[in-house]
């Protein structure tokens, strides 16, 4: 059988229809006091969230974001056929323990910080292919859990270089459905997607995540535009996941280098990592982590689409595919980016 929905080299269309029905977000205190603070459903006063450990807190954040999305969709937990989710922790601790409480068929995903788009793409595939009626897709990260796993302990005395990024304490989830929402509700449709390749540009410095992932974002975006025959101005906003201020500059420079019009690139392209915090929140190069693009997408971007400010958005979460031991073995940091196109009908 021919792959009817595949276009170009690595992209696909969702002609049967996959609609975003509900969305939910939970963020930490710092994220809540950032410029997007008012967009989120729940802002924590304490990043422990009343739990005994940070991992449990992250798990609870993810669960509450999932439940909020189901509730907004006007559905019950029982209506969800598949739940897709991931986080940054070893063996997907936050997601798996969240799924333990949810009693919904569950697939755990790891795409580092690209997980939100990974779950959106796979969720849309399941819906468009007719394998599920309603899919929950989400991702989470927590500053304290990620930091102690990947870098140094939080209480450890060290200085963060200007290129370092801040792992967002945030969780975001959406319900993707085969049925469009009822009349009067904006119809936001997942319309096309591009699955990214792992690109390694040889960056070894763990404090240069944005630079390590930028080439992957550029590769995915250029392939997406070529596969679909679109220009960057087809979209109202092309938004990468967590490249931060440095990574965003690199992407813009590389895109212009690849022949895209400079003015349009500056006008249409942005990065979630630069949106979540203000510069005076001491986050250096911006936000990172699965929760960064998950919460900015589910909290801020979808809200703007509902309000009609944005019609066509390309979300492109970016991930750094390093492990805890790979830098010790002298490996550089491979990057990945997936893209999903969303349109208001």
């Amino acid at each position: 059988m021919m792959a009817l929905k595949k276009i170009g080299s690595q992209s696909m269309l969702f002609p049967s229809g996959a609609w975003i029905r509900g969305r939910g977000t939970v963020v930490g205190k710092k994220e809540g006091s950032g410029p997007l603070g008012s967009c989120f459903d729940i802002v924590l006063q304490d990043d422990m969230y009343g739990e005994k450990s940070w991992e449990k807190a992250e798990s609870k954040m993810l669960k509450d974001a999932m439940m909020k999305a189901v509730q907004r969709a006007g559905l019950e937990k029982e209506n969800i056929d598949v739940m897709l989710s991931g986080d940054l922790l070893n063996q997907l601790m936050s997601s798996s323990f969240m799924a333990r409480d949810m009693h919904i068929p569950f697939l755990g995903l790891y795409g580092a910080c690209s997980t939100m788009t990974e779950s959106l793409v796979l969720g849309s595939i399941l819906i468009d292919g007719g394998f599920a009626e309603n899919v929950l897709a989400g991702a989470s990260s927590h500053f304290c859990t990620a930091e102690r796993q990947f870098r140094l302990p939080v209480e450890h005395g060290n200085q963060r270089p200007p290129s370092a990024q801040w792992t967002a304490t945030a969780a975001g989830a959406v319900v993707i459905s085969g049925q469009p929402p009822g009349p009067g509700i904006p119809r936001i449709r997942a319309e096309a997607a591009t699955i990214g390749r792992v690109i390694d540009a040889g960056i070894k410095d763990a404090n240069q995540m944005g630079a390590a992932m930028a080439p992957a974002a550029v590769d995915t975006l250029l392939n997406h535009l070529q596969d679909t025959g679109r220009g960057i101005d087809y979209y109202d906003l092309v938004v990468s996941g967590d490249l931060g201020f440095i990574g965003r500059e690199i992407v813009m420079d590389l895109l212009v280098d690849a022949g895209l019009p400079s003015a349009k690139v500056r006008e249409r392209y942005d990065d979630c990592g630069t949106m979540l915090y203000t510069k005076d929140q001491d986050v250096h190069s911006g936000g990172s982590g699965c929760g960064c693009s998950a919460s900015v997408f589910a909290g801020h971007l979808l809200q703007r689409m509902e309000q009609g400010e944005l019609k066509k958005v390309l979300l492109m979460s970016t991930g750094a595919m390093l492990s805890v031991i790979s830098p010790l073995q002298g490996e550089s940091i491979p990057g990945i980016a997936h893209a999903i196109s969303l349109e208001v009908e």
Partner: peptide, 25 residues
């Protein structure tokens, strides 16, 4: 090839990276 690319890209990235405040630090 990967090593060469890594080196060239590392140099390219430097222009976008603010340097630490050496003197005040």
């Amino acid at each position: 090839l990967r090593k060469d690319i890594g080196k060239a890209y590392g140099d390219y990235v430097k222009q976008f990276t603010p340097s630490p405040a050496y003197v005040s630090n």
